[in-house]
Amino acid sequence: MTPVVQLESVSRAFGRSRDAVAAVSDLDLAVPRGKFTTLLGPSGCGKTTTLRMIAGFVQPTSGRILLEGADATKTPPEKRNIGMVFQSYALFPHMTIIDNVAFGLRARGLAKTEVTARAGEALELVGLSALAGRKPGALSGGQQQRVALARAVAIRPSVLLLDEPLSNLDARLRVQMRAELRRVQRETGLTAILVTHDQDEALELSDHMVILNKGRLEQEGAPRDVFPRPASRFVADFLGYENFPVLPGHGPVAIRPEHVRLLSSGEPEDAGVTLEATVTNVTYQGSHCVVEVNANGLGDGTRLLCAHPGEAPRPGEAVRVLLPAAHLVTLGEDAEAAR
């Protein structure tokens, strides 16, 4: 099956040729049909530029973009059949909610009855039929974003593009809207691409996640594959791995604080690496304590964080720390450093 969206060594530089800054470099991407794909990375990693190139708002400096298998690199946005949802909602302030949702259908010259039916259907999908006659200014941020989603879905786009759609919402609403996004994508069966810098959002929503760093692809795959096995220090760091010791016989590894264990005296050692260490700091976090230790055998300054659920030791105490083999991730080089 052809991917809905394909990028072939796409690059985009901003600024004049001499001091141009590459926002996206040589990116290859295939977006699987009917799946939820996220472009994840810190700000400035090129994820938004990538999305805007797929939408047609930004032209690639080089490379090709294929939509439904056909070269669309030069196609203007209005001919791409995309449904885009913006961080700022971008609802038309002078139109009612239903006219907003119907805009794309009218632009396609559909018959009046069909416009009414499909706009109503899309508004019902997000549960806002009751607000059809209001203006956007009368709606809350969460409602506005659902209208924006309905407007994008109504045209039955070949791909739904979501540009950090939840970033302007407060934390609680954001979590609700995640479920809403996922539900709408499942019910419509649309291919979706979400841009986000929020790893939790990406983990929860994606079937396929693509991690970008400085305009290059760092790693891609299903969240269940990527999360426990980050391929580079960058990805591990971004996904919340906080310990990066260099172990004798292992080389550079990464391990999450919640997987580091403090051994009580006499406890048998599991498979893994045991280190003698000194506690330097303890921070209380409610459900657990974060214990900061300095490992003795690893030279100065090898600091490890350990999320410890039990009673915490005091600073200055000597402890034994176990890094279980099952949770040790051997790191490759970052994509950028590898070049």
Binding site: G56, P77, G104, I155
Partner: peptide, 15 residues
């Protein structure tokens, strides 16, 4: 006004 408004319209198929 939001500069994304025009992009939203273009994306929805308006020339």
């Amino acid at each position: 006004s939001d500069p994304r408004l025009e992009e939203a319209a273009r994306g929805l198929g308006a020339g």
